[in-house]
Amino acid sequence: MRPSKISGFVALLAVVAAWELVARAGLVNPLLFPAMSKILASFLALLASGEIPAQIARSMERAAAGYFLAATVCIPLGVAMGLSERVYRALEVVVETLRPVPPPVVIPVAMLFLGIGDGMKIFVIFFSCAWPILLNTIDGVRNIDGLLVDTARTFGLARGRTILKVVLPAAAPQIMTGLRISLSITLILVVISEMIGSTDGIGYFILNAQRRLKVDQMYAGMIALALLGYILNQAFLFVSKRLLRGR
């Protein structure tokens, strides 16, 4: 381990220990800051009882549906808009009008149409993830070396095969950038939509724990969420390294 990492972990331990001591000494309101040991015990208990895994599973179902829906719609659309100036210009005004809408305000609209079920959350995640994927795909396709496409044509590749074999691989790094940005947005929006209109999921769990003043459970939920974010990011890096290998 690097020495800088060690001092980092020492600092982390110091923060945790200071929290524990300050909370035990009664220097802070225990209602707001319960002792760290109590939070961790609560986290482990919720993990063992299956409560946290169940809530995370609900959130992940919604997140995955919205995320993959956005990818399946926006990558082909982005390729079309990146390849054809005509398609791009036809859709430009619609895209530029919808893009500045802050995603959370789409939640009330989605609630009108879809109620407070999974459909609402999936739509909201789809809406917010769509932009980074779409814009990065357009950019990636536009920046492809024209020579590559011409070469493919010279060798008699049909349009569909050119897109699959030449355009998509060449634009892949930038598409991955869009997918990566969208991944963290997905997590934010699933939590927001569960806070505003839901009866389960990790976002609901955290807000509800706060409202019932089960503060240790609230912090336990936040620990679970941080772990989830970390794991998802690492998983994404792993997959994208494999997909982009040889580049």
Binding site: L31, L32, S184, L187, I188, V191, I192, M195, G203, I206, L207, A209, Q210, V215, M218, Y219, G221, M222, L225, A226, L227, G229, Y230, N233
Partner: peptide, 14 residues
């Protein structure tokens, strides 16, 4: 890695 909105309940408490 924690989605920043998860801080809202803590902020409401404090």
């Amino acid at each position: 890695p924690m989605p920043s909105v998860a801080i809202i309940p803590v902020a409401i408490l404090c």
